[in-house]
């Protein structure tokens, strides 16, 4: 899936780095829990940050299915299209 917005990857990457305090930016296969050490509280923080950054609403029931950074990008992209905002 391609990003519907320019710089989507970079913007999400910046949020993920901020929340996880990771030293290097994630790539598509980076796992949020296994690689970045995020716990459930961090995941909630990440959701809140992404919502603020993009003005979208991320349903919490989708979160367990999102394991990698690539999946975050795809999901945020899809939500941006669905919810028609940027």
């Amino acid at each position: 899936m391609t990003s519907p917005l320019p710089n989507l990857d970079e913007r999400i990457s910046a949020v993920v780095v901020r929340v996880s305090r990771a030293s290097t930016p994630p790539d598509r296969s980076t796992e949020l829990i296994a690689d970045l050490g995020l716990d459930s509280m961090h995941l909630l923080e990440l959701i809140a940050e992404l919502e603020d950054e993009f003005g979208i609403y991320i349903p919490l029931n989708e979160v367990p299915a999102i394991k990698t950074f690539g999946q975050v990008v795809d999901r945020v992209g899809a939500l941006l299209r669905e919810q028609g905002r940027r």
Partner: peptide
């Protein structure tokens, strides 16, 4: 809290 989180998450569609 974790209980609450997991009680809200993890539902399949």
């Amino acid at each position: 809290l974790r209980h609450l989180i997991s009680s809200q998450w993890g539902y399949t569609k």
